Simulated assay, not measured.
Amino acid sequence: MDSPYRLELSVAIGAVQAAAQIARTVQAAHLSSSSSSSQQQTGSSSSSNDTHIKEDLSPVTVADFAIQAMLTAKLREAFASDGVVGEESAAALREIGSDGAALLAAVVNVISRCTDSDAPVLDGEAVCELIDYGVADADPEITGADAGRVWVFDPIDGTRAFLRGEQYAINVALLEGGRQILTVVGCPLLSADAAAPATVADGDVDPSGRGCLLFAVRGYGAYARPLLLGPGQGEEERETRRLARHADGVSVDGLRSVTCWKHLDSGVDEAHEAVAQRLGLSFPGCDLLGWVPRWAVLALGLANVTVWVYKKRSRHGKIWDHAGAMLLFEEVGGLITDVDGRDIDLTKGRKLTANFGFVAAPRSVHHIVLKAVRDTLRAQGKQKLLQQ
Protein backbone atom coordinates (compact mmCIF):
# COMPACT_ATOMS: atom_id res chain seq x y z
CA MET A 1 0.00 0.00 0.00
CA ASP A 2 1.34 3.40 -0.99
CA SER A 3 -0.11 6.11 1.26
CA PRO A 4 1.03 9.17 3.25
CA TYR A 5 1.14 6.89 6.30
CA ARG A 6 3.74 4.41 5.12
CA LEU A 7 6.00 4.94 8.13
CA GLU A 8 3.16 4.70 10.63
CA LEU A 9 1.88 1.56 8.97
CA SER A 10 5.33 -0.04 8.94
CA VAL A 11 5.92 0.70 12.62
CA ALA A 12 2.46 -0.52 13.62
CA ILE A 13 2.80 -3.74 11.61
CA GLY A 14 6.17 -4.45 13.22
CA ALA A 15 4.71 -3.76 16.67
CA VAL A 16 1.75 -6.09 16.10
CA GLN A 17 4.03 -8.85 14.82
CA ALA A 18 6.15 -8.50 17.97
CA ALA A 19 2.99 -8.50 20.08
CA ALA A 20 1.83 -11.69 18.39
CA GLN A 21 5.10 -13.37 19.36
CA ILE A 22 4.47 -12.48 23.00
CA ALA A 23 0.87 -13.68 22.75
CA ARG A 24 1.82 -17.00 21.20
CA THR A 25 4.53 -17.57 23.81
CA VAL A 26 2.24 -16.81 26.75
CA GLN A 27 -0.69 -18.77 25.35
CA ALA A 28 1.43 -21.87 24.76
CA ALA A 29 2.88 -21.68 28.27
CA HIS A 30 -0.55 -21.10 29.82
CA LEU A 31 -2.15 -24.03 27.99
CA SER A 32 0.77 -26.29 28.87
CA SER A 33 0.58 -25.25 32.51
CA SER A 34 -3.19 -25.67 32.59
CA SER A 35 -2.91 -29.16 31.09
CA SER A 36 -0.26 -30.19 33.63
CA SER A 37 -2.28 -28.74 36.52
CA SER A 38 -5.37 -30.57 35.34
CA GLN A 39 -3.52 -33.87 35.21
CA GLN A 40 -2.02 -33.35 38.67
CA GLN A 41 -5.13 -31.95 40.32
CA THR A 42 -6.11 -33.88 43.43
CA GLY A 43 -9.30 -32.07 44.27
CA SER A 44 -7.81 -28.93 45.80
CA SER A 45 -8.17 -25.61 44.03
CA SER A 46 -5.12 -24.22 42.26
CA SER A 47 -4.09 -20.77 41.09
CA SER A 48 -1.76 -19.46 38.43
CA ASN A 49 0.44 -16.37 38.52
CA ASP A 50 -0.16 -15.68 34.82
CA THR A 51 -3.74 -14.50 35.24
CA HIS A 52 -5.32 -11.65 37.18
CA ILE A 53 -9.04 -10.86 37.44
CA LYS A 54 -9.95 -7.20 36.99
CA GLU A 55 -12.76 -5.47 38.86
CA ASP A 56 -15.06 -5.98 35.85
CA LEU A 57 -14.28 -9.73 36.14
CA SER A 58 -12.48 -9.94 32.79
CA PRO A 59 -9.20 -11.86 32.99
CA VAL A 60 -5.96 -10.06 32.31
CA THR A 61 -2.94 -12.16 31.46
CA VAL A 62 0.78 -11.69 31.36
CA ALA A 63 0.32 -11.21 27.61
CA ASP A 64 -2.01 -8.20 28.07
CA PHE A 65 0.46 -6.41 30.31
CA ALA A 66 3.57 -7.35 28.32
CA ILE A 67 2.03 -6.39 24.97
CA GLN A 68 0.76 -3.04 26.25
CA ALA A 69 4.24 -2.18 27.55
CA MET A 70 5.88 -3.27 24.31
CA LEU A 71 3.41 -1.44 22.05
CA THR A 72 3.76 1.74 24.08
CA ALA A 73 7.56 1.54 23.92
CA LYS A 74 7.66 1.01 20.16
CA LEU A 75 5.10 3.70 19.33
CA ARG A 76 6.63 6.28 21.67
CA GLU A 77 10.08 5.58 20.25
CA ALA A 78 8.87 6.21 16.70
CA PHE A 79 6.31 8.96 17.37
CA ALA A 80 7.25 10.68 20.62
CA SER A 81 4.70 13.48 20.34
CA ASP A 82 1.70 11.21 19.76
CA GLY A 83 -0.74 10.33 22.52
CA VAL A 84 -1.39 6.76 23.63
CA VAL A 85 -4.55 5.10 25.00
CA GLY A 86 -4.18 1.51 26.19
CA GLU A 87 -6.63 -0.76 27.97
CA GLU A 88 -4.63 -1.93 30.97
CA SER A 89 -3.39 -0.37 34.20
CA ALA A 90 -0.28 -1.52 36.08
CA ALA A 91 -2.06 -1.32 39.44
CA ALA A 92 -2.14 -5.11 39.84
CA LEU A 93 1.56 -5.33 39.07
CA ARG A 94 2.35 -2.70 41.70
CA GLU A 95 0.47 -4.53 44.46
CA ILE A 96 2.60 -5.27 47.49
CA GLY A 97 2.85 -8.99 48.09
CA SER A 98 3.78 -12.19 46.33
CA ASP A 99 0.97 -12.13 43.74
CA GLY A 100 1.85 -8.72 42.33
CA ALA A 101 5.56 -9.44 42.41
CA ALA A 102 5.14 -12.80 40.67
CA LEU A 103 2.90 -11.34 37.99
CA LEU A 104 5.32 -8.48 37.32
CA ALA A 105 8.27 -10.87 37.18
CA ALA A 106 6.43 -12.98 34.62
CA VAL A 107 5.67 -9.89 32.49
CA VAL A 108 9.29 -8.71 32.56
CA ASN A 109 10.48 -12.23 31.73
CA VAL A 110 8.29 -12.68 28.65
CA ILE A 111 9.20 -9.23 27.32
CA SER A 112 12.86 -10.13 27.69
CA ARG A 113 12.39 -13.50 25.95
CA CYS A 114 10.43 -12.08 23.02
CA THR A 115 12.31 -8.83 22.41
CA ASP A 116 15.16 -8.30 19.95
CA SER A 117 18.55 -8.83 21.51
CA ASP A 118 19.60 -5.24 20.77
CA ALA A 119 16.55 -3.72 22.47
CA PRO A 120 17.02 -2.05 25.87
CA VAL A 121 16.40 -4.30 28.87
CA LEU A 122 13.31 -3.24 30.85
CA ASP A 123 13.04 -3.66 34.59
CA GLY A 124 9.80 -3.91 36.53
CA GLU A 125 9.38 -0.19 37.19
CA ALA A 126 10.01 0.67 33.53
CA VAL A 127 7.38 -1.86 32.46
CA CYS A 128 4.83 -0.43 34.89
CA GLU A 129 5.52 3.11 33.69
CA LEU A 130 5.01 2.07 30.07
CA ILE A 131 1.72 0.36 30.87
CA ASP A 132 0.42 3.34 32.84
CA TYR A 133 1.51 5.84 30.20
CA GLY A 134 -1.56 4.93 28.18
CA VAL A 135 -3.78 5.26 31.23
CA ALA A 136 -2.43 8.68 32.21
CA ASP A 137 -3.11 10.06 28.74
CA ALA A 138 -6.62 8.65 28.55
CA ASP A 139 -8.70 11.55 29.87
CA PRO A 140 -11.72 12.40 27.66
CA GLU A 141 -9.87 15.20 25.84
CA ILE A 142 -7.10 12.92 24.56
CA THR A 143 -9.36 11.58 21.78
CA GLY A 144 -11.37 14.76 21.27
CA ALA A 145 -12.05 16.44 17.96
CA ASP A 146 -9.34 19.00 18.74
CA ALA A 147 -6.80 16.35 19.77
CA GLY A 148 -3.82 15.54 17.63
CA ARG A 149 -2.61 12.05 16.82
CA VAL A 150 -3.47 9.32 19.28
CA TRP A 151 -2.63 5.62 19.16
CA VAL A 152 -5.28 3.35 20.66
CA PHE A 153 -4.69 -0.34 21.24
CA ASP A 154 -6.07 -3.47 22.81
CA PRO A 155 -3.24 -5.87 23.72
CA ILE A 156 -5.48 -8.97 23.74
CA ASP A 157 -9.12 -8.75 22.69
CA GLY A 158 -11.01 -11.89 23.61
CA THR A 159 -8.93 -12.75 26.69
CA ARG A 160 -11.29 -15.47 27.87
CA ALA A 161 -10.98 -17.20 24.50
CA PHE A 162 -7.21 -16.61 24.54
CA LEU A 163 -6.97 -18.50 27.85
CA ARG A 164 -8.80 -21.44 26.22
CA GLY A 165 -6.46 -21.50 23.22
CA GLU A 166 -9.14 -19.96 20.98
CA GLN A 167 -9.60 -16.89 18.77
CA TYR A 168 -8.27 -13.54 19.95
CA ALA A 169 -6.85 -10.39 18.34
CA ILE A 170 -4.38 -7.56 18.84
CA ASN A 171 -5.68 -4.15 17.79
CA VAL A 172 -3.66 -0.99 17.03
CA ALA A 173 -5.30 2.16 15.67
CA LEU A 174 -4.19 5.68 14.86
CA LEU A 175 -6.70 8.50 15.37
CA GLU A 176 -6.37 12.11 14.28
CA GLY A 177 -8.87 14.46 15.84
CA GLY A 178 -10.92 11.47 16.93
CA ARG A 179 -11.09 10.12 13.37
CA GLN A 180 -9.85 6.66 12.38
CA ILE A 181 -6.86 7.02 10.08
CA LEU A 182 -5.01 3.72 10.24
CA THR A 183 -5.41 0.27 11.73
CA VAL A 184 -3.39 -2.91 12.12
CA VAL A 185 -5.04 -6.02 13.53
CA GLY A 186 -3.27 -9.29 14.28
CA CYS A 187 -5.34 -12.50 14.56
CA PRO A 188 -2.79 -15.24 15.34
CA LEU A 189 -5.33 -18.09 15.06
CA LEU A 190 -7.41 -16.88 12.08
CA SER A 191 -6.51 -17.95 8.56
CA ALA A 192 -5.66 -15.13 6.16
CA ASP A 193 -7.20 -17.26 3.40
CA ALA A 194 -10.57 -17.69 5.13
CA ALA A 195 -13.42 -16.82 2.80
CA ALA A 196 -17.20 -17.06 2.58
CA PRO A 197 -19.30 -19.15 2.80
CA ALA A 198 -17.14 -20.57 5.61
CA THR A 199 -18.01 -19.49 9.15
CA VAL A 200 -15.63 -19.10 12.06
CA ALA A 201 -16.19 -19.76 15.76
CA ASP A 202 -13.83 -19.22 18.68
CA GLY A 203 -12.62 -22.80 18.58
CA ASP A 204 -11.74 -22.77 14.85
CA VAL A 205 -7.97 -22.41 14.60
CA ASP A 206 -5.94 -21.78 11.43
CA PRO A 207 -4.52 -25.22 10.56
CA SER A 208 -1.45 -23.66 8.94
CA GLY A 209 -0.52 -21.92 12.18
CA ARG A 210 0.36 -18.73 10.29
CA GLY A 211 -2.51 -16.53 11.42
CA CYS A 212 -3.75 -13.34 9.80
CA LEU A 213 -2.69 -9.71 9.78
CA LEU A 214 -5.12 -7.10 8.49
CA PHE A 215 -4.39 -3.44 7.91
CA ALA A 216 -6.01 -0.38 6.40
CA VAL A 217 -5.50 3.33 5.86
CA ARG A 218 -8.60 5.47 5.41
CA GLY A 219 -9.32 5.86 1.71
CA TYR A 220 -6.62 3.39 0.64
CA GLY A 221 -8.43 0.08 1.15
CA ALA A 222 -8.01 -2.88 3.49
CA TYR A 223 -5.45 -5.65 3.13
CA ALA A 224 -4.78 -9.09 4.55
CA ARG A 225 -1.71 -11.28 4.70
CA PRO A 226 -0.39 -14.15 6.81
CA LEU A 227 0.92 -13.02 10.17
CA LEU A 228 3.83 -15.46 9.98
CA LEU A 229 6.02 -16.36 7.01
CA GLY A 230 5.64 -19.79 5.45
CA PRO A 231 8.45 -22.37 5.40
CA GLY A 232 11.44 -21.02 3.51
CA GLN A 233 9.76 -17.69 2.74
CA GLY A 234 11.48 -14.33 2.91
CA GLU A 235 9.67 -11.12 3.81
CA GLU A 236 9.44 -10.16 0.14
CA GLU A 237 7.53 -13.39 -0.52
CA ARG A 238 4.81 -12.78 2.05
CA GLU A 239 1.48 -12.88 0.17
CA THR A 240 -0.53 -9.67 0.65
CA ARG A 241 -3.94 -9.17 -0.94
CA ARG A 242 -6.20 -6.18 -1.13
CA LEU A 243 -9.62 -7.09 0.19
CA ALA A 244 -12.41 -6.66 -2.32
CA ARG A 245 -15.17 -4.20 -1.50
CA HIS A 246 -17.47 -7.14 -0.95
CA ALA A 247 -20.03 -5.11 1.00
CA ASP A 248 -20.84 -2.88 -1.96
CA GLY A 249 -24.28 -3.47 -3.44
CA VAL A 250 -25.26 -6.37 -1.18
CA SER A 251 -28.96 -7.20 -0.92
CA VAL A 252 -30.70 -8.49 2.21
CA ASP A 253 -30.55 -12.00 0.74
CA GLY A 254 -26.76 -11.74 0.74
CA LEU A 255 -26.37 -10.91 4.42
CA ARG A 256 -24.23 -13.16 6.64
CA SER A 257 -24.10 -12.66 10.38
CA VAL A 258 -21.33 -12.51 12.97
CA THR A 259 -22.19 -12.21 16.64
CA CYS A 260 -21.35 -13.48 20.11
CA TRP A 261 -24.07 -15.95 20.98
CA LYS A 262 -24.82 -16.54 24.68
CA HIS A 263 -21.28 -15.89 25.89
CA LEU A 264 -21.60 -12.33 27.22
CA ASP A 265 -24.00 -10.93 29.80
CA SER A 266 -23.95 -7.43 28.33
CA GLY A 267 -26.04 -8.07 25.20
CA VAL A 268 -29.69 -8.90 24.53
CA ASP A 269 -29.34 -12.35 22.95
CA GLU A 270 -33.04 -12.78 22.21
CA ALA A 271 -33.11 -9.48 20.31
CA HIS A 272 -30.04 -10.39 18.24
CA GLU A 273 -31.63 -13.71 17.27
CA ALA A 274 -34.99 -12.12 16.47
CA VAL A 275 -33.37 -9.49 14.24
CA ALA A 276 -31.71 -12.28 12.27
CA GLN A 277 -35.04 -14.08 11.94
CA ARG A 278 -36.75 -10.89 10.79
CA LEU A 279 -34.10 -10.47 8.09
CA GLY A 280 -34.13 -14.17 7.12
CA LEU A 281 -30.50 -14.73 8.18
CA SER A 282 -28.84 -17.93 9.26
CA PHE A 283 -27.93 -17.39 12.90
CA PRO A 284 -25.54 -17.04 14.64
CA GLY A 285 -23.25 -17.47 11.62
CA CYS A 286 -19.72 -16.58 12.73
CA ASP A 287 -19.69 -16.74 16.53
CA LEU A 288 -16.82 -14.93 18.26
CA LEU A 289 -16.30 -13.62 21.77
CA GLY A 290 -14.00 -10.68 20.97
CA TRP A 291 -15.13 -7.58 19.13
CA VAL A 292 -11.89 -7.20 17.18
CA PRO A 293 -12.12 -10.74 15.74
CA ARG A 294 -15.68 -9.89 14.71
CA TRP A 295 -14.52 -6.77 12.86
CA ALA A 296 -11.81 -8.90 11.25
CA VAL A 297 -14.23 -11.47 9.83
CA LEU A 298 -16.44 -8.63 8.57
CA ALA A 299 -13.44 -7.29 6.67
CA LEU A 300 -12.57 -10.71 5.26
CA GLY A 301 -16.13 -11.21 4.01
CA LEU A 302 -16.90 -14.22 6.21
CA ALA A 303 -19.77 -12.06 7.45
CA ASN A 304 -21.17 -8.66 6.51
CA VAL A 305 -23.61 -7.76 9.27
CA THR A 306 -23.48 -7.57 13.04
CA VAL A 307 -25.92 -6.16 15.58
CA TRP A 308 -25.31 -5.54 19.26
CA VAL A 309 -27.90 -4.21 21.68
CA TYR A 310 -26.79 -3.72 25.28
CA LYS A 311 -29.16 -4.64 28.10
CA LYS A 312 -28.94 -1.14 29.54
CA ARG A 313 -28.72 2.30 27.92
CA SER A 314 -26.00 3.11 30.45
CA ARG A 315 -23.70 0.45 28.97
CA HIS A 316 -21.17 1.62 26.38
CA GLY A 317 -18.48 0.10 24.20
CA LYS A 318 -14.80 0.65 24.94
CA ILE A 319 -12.69 2.51 22.44
CA TRP A 320 -9.94 -0.12 22.12
CA ASP A 321 -12.43 -2.81 21.07
CA HIS A 322 -13.59 -0.82 18.05
CA ALA A 323 -11.31 2.07 17.04
CA GLY A 324 -9.35 1.14 13.94
CA ALA A 325 -10.81 -2.34 13.66
CA MET A 326 -14.07 -0.78 12.43
CA LEU A 327 -12.11 0.92 9.66
CA LEU A 328 -11.38 -2.49 8.15
CA PHE A 329 -15.09 -3.02 7.46
CA GLU A 330 -15.65 0.54 6.29
CA GLU A 331 -12.88 0.13 3.72
CA VAL A 332 -14.72 -2.84 2.15
CA GLY A 333 -18.03 -0.99 1.87
CA GLY A 334 -19.51 -1.34 5.34
CA LEU A 335 -21.46 1.29 7.28
CA ILE A 336 -21.40 1.34 11.09
CA THR A 337 -23.77 3.23 13.38
CA ASP A 338 -25.26 2.68 16.79
CA VAL A 339 -28.79 1.43 17.50
CA ASP A 340 -30.05 5.02 17.28
CA GLY A 341 -28.57 5.38 13.79
CA ARG A 342 -25.79 7.74 14.90
CA ASP A 343 -22.22 7.55 13.65
CA ILE A 344 -19.78 6.03 16.15
CA ASP A 345 -18.11 8.88 18.06
CA LEU A 346 -14.53 8.16 19.13
CA THR A 347 -13.92 11.57 20.70
CA LYS A 348 -15.22 10.85 24.22
CA GLY A 349 -12.23 9.08 25.75
CA ARG A 350 -12.03 5.49 26.90
CA LYS A 351 -15.75 4.70 26.54
CA LEU A 352 -18.07 5.42 23.62
CA THR A 353 -20.51 7.35 25.79
CA ALA A 354 -22.17 9.10 22.83
CA ASN A 355 -23.38 5.78 21.38
CA PHE A 356 -25.59 2.85 22.32
CA GLY A 357 -24.80 -0.50 20.73
CA PHE A 358 -23.75 -1.23 17.16
CA VAL A 359 -25.37 -1.87 13.79
CA ALA A 360 -22.89 -2.72 11.03
CA ALA A 361 -24.00 -3.75 7.55
CA PRO A 362 -23.31 -3.13 3.87
CA ARG A 363 -24.06 0.50 3.12
CA SER A 364 -26.72 -0.52 0.59
CA VAL A 365 -28.91 -2.24 3.18
CA HIS A 366 -27.84 -0.69 6.47
CA HIS A 367 -31.11 1.25 6.74
CA ILE A 368 -33.05 -2.01 6.43
CA VAL A 369 -31.00 -3.71 9.14
CA LEU A 370 -31.32 -0.69 11.43
CA LYS A 371 -35.10 -0.66 11.00
CA ALA A 372 -35.23 -4.40 11.75
CA VAL A 373 -33.33 -3.80 14.99
CA ARG A 374 -35.61 -1.02 16.14
CA ASP A 375 -38.79 -2.84 15.08
CA THR A 376 -37.62 -5.94 16.94
CA LEU A 377 -36.99 -4.03 20.17
CA ARG A 378 -40.47 -2.51 19.98
CA ALA A 379 -42.05 -5.89 19.28
CA GLN A 380 -40.26 -7.38 22.29
CA GLY A 381 -41.41 -4.58 24.59
CA LYS A 382 -37.93 -3.14 24.91
CA GLN A 383 -38.79 0.43 23.92
CA LYS A 384 -36.76 1.70 26.89
CA LEU A 385 -33.65 0.70 24.94
CA LEU A 386 -34.57 3.05 22.12
CA GLN A 387 -33.78 6.73 22.24
CA GLN A 388 -36.97 8.59 22.97
Rank of each mutant, 00 (worst) to 15 (best):
S3P: 04
Y5V: 02
I13E: 12
R24P: 00
H30Q: 05
Q40T: 10
G43D: 10
S47K: 14
H52D: 02
H52I: 04
K54L: 02
K54C: 02
D56R: 03
D56F: 01
L57V: 07
P59F: 12
A66E: 06
Q68A: 05
A73K: 13
E77W: 11
A78H: 12
A80L: 07
D82G: 07
D82P: 03
G86V: 05
E88I: 02
S89I: 00
A92T: 01
L93I: 06
E95N: 10
I96A: 15
S98W: 11
L104S: 03
V107Y: 04
V108N: 05
V110C: 05
I111H: 01
D118S: 14
A119C: 01
L122C: 09
A126E: 13
A126D: 10
V127P: 08
C128N: 05
L130F: 05
Y133G: 09
D137W: 11
D137P: 02
P140A: 08
I142F: 07
G144Y: 02
A145T: 12
R149F: 07
V150W: 02
F153P: 01
G158H: 00
R160K: 12
L163I: 06
R164C: 14
G165D: 05
A169Y: 07
N171H: 11
L174M: 15
E176C: 13
G177P: 10
R179P: 09
Q180A: 15
V184K: 00
L189Q: 09
L189F: 13
L190I: 08
S191F: 03
S191M: 01
A192W: 15
A192N: 00
A194H: 06
A195G: 00
A196Q: 07
V200R: 09
A201R: 15
D204Y: 07
V205I: 15
P207V: 05
G209V: 05
G209S: 02
R210I: 01
R210E: 12
C212G: 00
L213D: 12
F215R: 00
A224V: 14
A224T: 13
R225A: 15
P226L: 07
G230L: 04
G232F: 00
G234S: 12
E236K: 10
E237Q: 14
E237W: 07
R238D: 08
E239G: 03
T240D: 08
R241I: 13
L243P: 03
L243M: 13
A244Y: 08
R245S: 11
H246M: 07
G254H: 10
R256Q: 14
V258Y: 08
L264E: 08
L264N: 10
D265K: 11
G267I: 13
G267S: 11
D269K: 10
A274N: 06
V275A: 04
G280N: 08
G280K: 09
G285R: 09
L289S: 07
W291Y: 12
R294G: 04
L298Q: 01
N304W: 00
V305E: 02
V309E: 08
K312N: 14
S314W: 09
H322E: 11
M326P: 00
L327G: 02
L328P: 11
E330R: 15
E330L: 07
V339I: 14
G341Y: 05
R342Q: 14
I344W: 04
T347Q: 12
T347A: 14
K351C: 12
K351E: 12
F356N: 03
A360G: 02
R363N: 09
R363Q: 15
R378I: 00
Q380E: 12
K382Q: 15
L386W: 06
L386T: 07
Q387H: 14
